[in-house]
């Protein structure tokens, strides 16, 4: 940023929106260098997925898989990782389970958080602040504090080896409510709400007709992040799932990390991680369409 601000001359023509070529090149240079910095480990993961087990252990960096093998992918789908490690959960099944966890968690969470965020942002009622602070406070406890009672609750409910522990508790994410509330309060003018009230709209009606159409960008952000959190969840899935049929992708890939007792299978792990990111990238692109501007200004003019 320092380079950028220095590069833009103070005498820039008023209202001009085009950057001079020199500073534009500088901006691109910084953006691309950052891009490489952020992309590098992902790239390393992709090439590792085409290399043998110990290739990641290699001290000499390679920028292209050498030797190039595809057996990590076939091993992943056959479940026969090496003669001694035969995985009991089919990878396809784990992908399905992860998808079920992520969708079943994200869609209701978006509905709940936007509704609650709207009520907190635009309605005043007794206890509003207290309730909102209650939401905030639970955000602040580390999971290690609550994992034992969480497990106890799930096993008393008979929810071990079901999706419920990974769905219902996460329909009420505190940070989601917080983010929704911040966005709605800042960007939806009260005039819109008041006008709807004058027209006799109910609270649910206002939410449906005014709020929902205007919160596309933040729903996209929350949707992406929530989906990815759910997709990547390890801690909670690990304690509630034992049945091979209920194992999710992070649990399955963890079998290859070898940090506890077995030899790491980094190649297969990288292959699994690469496949596991494909749905995430799809979700990213799908939701990113909602991040494209223009929604707000149109609504206000109307």
């Amino acid at each position: 940023m320092a380079e950028m601000s220095a590069a833009i001359p103070q005498s820039q023509v008023v209202g001009q929106s085009r950057m001079p070529a020199f500073s534009r090149i500088l901006v691109y240079l910084v953006l691309i260098m950052l891009g490489i910095f952020f992309m590098f480990p992902f790239y390393a993961m992709v090439i590792a997925s085409f290399m043998p087990r110990n290739a990641l252990n290699s001290i000499t960096p390679t920028l292209w898989p050498n030797p190039f093998i595809t057996s990590n992918y076939t091993a992943l789908f056959s479940g026969e990782i090496n003669p001694d490690l035969i995985v009991k959960t089919p990878f396809i099944r784990a992908l399905f389970n992860s998808l079920a966890v992520a969708i079943g968690q994200t869609v209701p969470a978006l509905l709940f958080t936007s509704l609650v965020g709207f009520v907190f942002a635009k309605r005043r009622f007794p206890g509003r602040n207290i309730l909102f602070y209650c939401v905030l406070v639970t955000m602040m406890l580390p999971y290690q504090s609550t994992i034992v009672p969480f497990f106890l609750l799930m096993s008393r409910l008979g929810w071990i080896n079901t999706f419920w522990p990974l769905w219902i508790p996460w329909w009420a994410p505190a940070w989601g409510v917080f983010l929704m509330r911040q966005f709605i309060a800042a960007t939806i003018p009260d005039e819109l709400i008041d006008a709807a009230a004058i027209d006799g709209a109910s609270l649910l009606g206002m939410y449906w007709r005014i709020v929902l159409p205007l919160i596309g960008p933040i729903t996209a952000v929350l949707g992406i992040l929530n989906f990815m959190n759910a997709w990547n969840d390890f801690i909670y899935s690990n304690i509630v799932m034992n049945d091979p049929n209920m194992v999710t992708v992070p649990l399955l890939l963890n079998l290859f990390k070898g940090a506890t007792l077995t030899v790491p299978e980094y190649g297969v792990m990288a292959a699994g991680s690469v496949i596991a990111t494909i749905p995430l990238i799809i979700v990213f692109f799908v939701f990113q369409r909602w991040l494209i501007g223009g929604i707000m200004s149109g609504a206000i003019k109307a």
């Binding site: 639970t138 034992v148 219902i168 009420a172």
Partner: peptide
Amino acid sequence: LISPFFIIFGIFHGYPLAFS
């Protein structure tokens, strides 16, 4: 409107908090 959220919240986040 906010009650379903707080019911879930109370059971699944409130109880572990109190236990803790």
